[in-house]
Structures are given as structure tokens and as C-alpha cells.
Amino acid sequence: MVPAAGRGERLGPGAPKALRELGGVPLLVHAVRALARSRAVGLVVVAAPAEGVAEVIALLDSHGLDGKDIRVVAGGDTRQESVRLGLAAIPAEVGIVLVHDAARPLVPVEVVDAVAAAVRAGAEAVVPAVPLADTVKLVEPQSGGRPEPVLDTPDRSALRAVQTPQGFRRDVLAAAHERALTEPVAVTDDAGLVERFGGRVVVVPGHEEAFKVTRPLDLVLAEAVLARRRASDGF
């Protein structure tokens, strides 16, 4: 599943983030292709902006995404709502669900495979992640650009930067989203939602090229990675 109904203002004004182009191809198309390359994936559900479902269907059709069942549904006002609506469009017999950010267009297929395999092996929830390269500070937030006092310096050896796709037993993910309807919680990813309601999340190795395109500089880096891939293997 690819929730892609957000606008992504941090990339600046213009088209929704998922429709920004990377190497002449929208980020969303790259993300869907990344999932579709995996033999573990049989269906891709895209949660599009409610007013843009027809546009997204036409976009995916125009880029020749053949060989996999790809469906587009109307997403919601939040990522969490889009995932819940996307879940409802997945056939009941599907027992494993991967949720992938449209803004992570370059995730290697081996990461997708590893996440799916870990769920198939018995994990309730799985996230790919990489070690942190930078020292991290816990601070007391201040308004107006004032200096922020440091409260703690966590040991980065035990910290990981989480990526997608995140994999779940379908019943575990669906139960977490249903519970969140009556017990709202502030989380930034689906694994966090499962974890908040008592589920067990495990980590598998991610990849440095599965970074999220959020700022203009990220797009420049993604262009460089894509150019290298095209030069080396015709990606």
C-alpha cells in the first residue's frame, strides 16, 4: 500500500509531493515500481487525493506498470486515514501488508523482500532501518528561533532511522487502525501505531538509498542516485 494523498509542503509550492518528478518520472511511479519489482508483492493499492483518483489512475497507466494488480482508491486528510482506507480496499484473503511512502522512490527490491520475509517468518510488524551517522541531542523546544537547551545525548549505537516499506500481519495493522479511531494517538508511522497499542515491532536492515524525499536537497540527491543507477544497470 502506498498512501499518497498528502501535499508535501516542505518541497515548496506546486504539485503534491508524490507527483513531483524524479528523472522525468513522478515519485509515486518510482515508489510503485519499487514495490512491484518484488516477487513477494501481488497487489499495490495507492491511496490518492480524493479529487485526484482519476488523474493518478491515468498517470500509472501511462507509465506502463504492467504485470501487477494496481488499484487506486481515495485517501483521507491524514496519512493514518489514508492507510485505513487503503486497507479496506485489500482483499480479505491477503494476510501480509506492506506500507510504503511515496516519497521513498529508490528503495531497493532487496529491502522490500526482506521486510515481507520477516513478516512471513512470524513477525507482527517489521521496519527497515539504518544506524544513525550523526550524534543526536534531546532538546527543550523553543519558539522564535531561540537557542534550545540540551536535555540529553542518547547513545546513538542503540538508535535507528526508520524507513519503509513497513510490513505487518494484516490483522495486527487493521486492529491498530480501528482502535485509533476511538483512542487517537500521535504517531508518525504505522509501526508506531502498532507499538503504541502493544504490538511487537522488529527491525531489519534498511538501505541508504531508501531515504525520504522531503526537501529540495533530497530531490537533488535522488537525481544523482537515479543517474548512477541508469548509467550502471539501465534502471
Rank of each mutant, 00 (worst) to 15 (best):
149 P>G: 02
161 A>T: 00
217 L>M: 09
224 A>T: 12
170 R>Q: 03
47 A>E: 05
204 V>M: 13
154 P>E: 03
142 Q>W: 00
208 E>K: 12
26 P>F: 13
177 H>S: 00
29 V>D: 04
231 A>C: 02
99 V>M: 06
232 S>P: 00
212 K>Y: 13
56 V>L: 14
50 A>L: 10
109 V>M: 05
38 S>V: 07
101 D>F: 04
182 T>C: 00
96 I>G: 07
105 P>S: 11
155 D>W: 04
53 V>P: 12
221 L>N: 08
138 L>Q: 10
143 S>Y: 08
144 G>Q: 06
20 R>D: 08
61 D>C: 02
155 D>N: 14
7 R>L: 15
180 A>I: 05
82 S>L: 07
223 E>N: 01
163 Q>G: 02
114 A>K: 11
4 A>N: 08
69 D>W: 11
102 A>L: 09
188 T>L: 14
155 D>F: 06
95 G>D: 15
164 T>L: 11
12 G>T: 01
223 E>A: 08
178 E>H: 12
62 S>Q: 01
136 V>E: 04
194 V>K: 06
20 R>G: 08
50 A>W: 13
172 V>L: 02
116 A>I: 06
55 E>Q: 15
234 G>A: 03
130 V>G: 00
56 V>C: 11
70 I>T: 14
39 R>E: 15
78 T>W: 09
233 D>Y: 14
2 V>D: 10
1 M>Y: 13
211 F>P: 01
186 A>V: 12
67 G>E: 14
152 D>C: 02
45 V>A: 13
186 A>H: 12
85 L>D: 05
44 V>K: 10
205 P>Q: 09
194 V>S: 03
47 A>V: 05
33 R>V: 07
24 G>N: 10
27 L>V: 02
179 R>A: 09
138 L>Y: 05
89 A>P: 01
104 R>V: 12
89 A>G: 04
138 L>A: 15
162 V>A: 07
158 A>H: 04
134 D>Y: 12
197 F>T: 01
15 A>M: 06
12 G>S: 05
78 T>I: 02
132 L>D: 00
63 H>M: 04
36 A>R: 08
47 A>C: 12
126 V>P: 12
200 R>M: 03
184 P>H: 07
45 V>L: 11
174 A>H: 08
199 G>D: 06
43 L>N: 04
93 E>F: 14
119 V>A: 11
203 V>A: 07
227 A>P: 04
111 V>H: 13
142 Q>M: 14
137 K>G: 00
226 L>W: 09
23 G>W: 11
139 V>M: 03
105 P>L: 14
142 Q>R: 15
229 R>V: 02
202 V>G: 01
214 T>C: 05
110 E>I: 01
66 D>W: 06
